[in-house]
């Protein structure tokens, strides 16, 4: 029942990360032309034609739905007929106690048709996709359900071209990240720190910044530094350096990065605003939105006033 081909198990994958669905589709085409067997793609939203391009057959859930509906319809009739005609015939409003009552059964038959179709199909879908409550998800990247589209190739699979060539094709096709050996993980059972440190940061990441391909509105370097200059000049420097690691969300590595762009003190952090955050995120390549979400500003404020 369960479609085994979608299970990631403990395989190792080469993963190309895209931020644009057209590029992903093009990369799929290119790789398939080269005869590369793609394991699967992971997207935060349904990308049209992706399943065709990957060569997946149309699902036959529709036939299952029809059968479920038929069963529902028949059970509606059986239920009503056996109860009101066979087992418990009553004189109700002078109506005959036979098959002519059929007209009264229609609403129930209809509703059960729908009910059986809906539930039958959804359960079949869950079963086929191996979806059960509480099952551990297999992820290759935390952002695959957010804004990044992943193209995964099973490293164990025999391919017509070797791994490094696949990686370079991916780079050429506009992947914003290409990683060589990615193991599936799940967020539910891994701590945040571990994830950041092990999976993403320490992964051998080849970042290819293809200017213009990104949909992001990027700031110019001048703009960035000008946005930060105020922060730097007035509020502190390396001399009064605070332990920024105390802020939740800042690890030792990121502290260094922050220091490198001139942010040393809680005071500086506490004065961050939307503009400066944007600049910092872009300069340090940090998770967009995290700073605000974790509310570094008030964290820093609290630490400052300790």
């Amino acid at each position: 029942m369960i479609d085994k081909s979608i299970q990631l198990d403990n395989k190792k994958f080469t993963v190309g990360t895209f931020d644009d669905s057209d590029k992903l589709l093009h990369a799929v085409d290119t790789l398939r032309e080269k005869g590369v067997k793609i394991f699967d793609c992971y997207t935060p939203f349904p990308v049209h034609h992706l399943d065709h391009k990957l060569g997946y057959q149309r699902t036959n859930l529709t036939i299952a739905a029809f059968i479920c509906g038929l069963i529902g319809c028949l059970s509606g009739f059986t239920l009503a007929y056996s109860m009101n005609v066979i087992d418990w015939p009553m004189i109700i409003g002078g109506k005959p106690q036979d098959i002519t009552l059929f007209t009264s059964f229609i609403p129930v038959m209809f509703e059960l048709t729908i009910l059986f179709t809906a539930f039958g199909m959804v359960f079949l879908f869950f079963a086929r996709s191996g979806m059960v409550h509480g099952i551990k998800e297999d992820l290759l990247d935390r952002r695959q359900t957010n804004d990044h589209m992943l193209l995964a190739i099973d490293n164990a699979e025999d391919q017509t071209v070797n791994n490094s060539e696949i990686q370079s094709i991916l780079q050429k096709e506009g992947a914003i990240e290409v990683r060589g050996t990615v193991t599936p993980f799940n967020t539910s059972h891994t701590s945040d720190e571990d994830l950041e440190n092990s999976t993403v940061i320490q992964e051998e990441v080849k970042v290819v910044r293809s200017s213009g391909s990104s949909k992001k509105i990027t700031l110019s370097d001048d703009e960035k530094s000008s946005r930060l200059s105020l922060l730097k000049s007035t509020l502190g420097d390396a001399s009064g350096k605070d332990d920024l690691k105390q802020i939740s969300g800042i690890g030792p590595k990121y502290e260094e990065t922050l220091n490198s762009i001139g942010i040393f003190t809680f005071e500086q952090v506490s004065k961050l605003n939307a503009d400066t955050i944007k600049a910092i995120e872009e300069m340090t390549n940090y998770f967009p939105g995290r700073i605000e979400r974790d509310d570094w500003m008030s964290q820093a404020n609290k630490l400052m006033n300790k």
């Binding site: 418990w88 109700i92 409003g93 002078g94």
Partner: peptide
């Protein structure tokens, strides 16, 4: 009523007609 309107509408057959 032989064709009692109350009987048809009872969902649980609490009102029915005797022979």
């Amino acid at each position: 009523c032989d064709n009692a309107p109350c009987e048809t509408v009872c969902p649980v057959l609490a009102t029915t007609h005797s022979s």
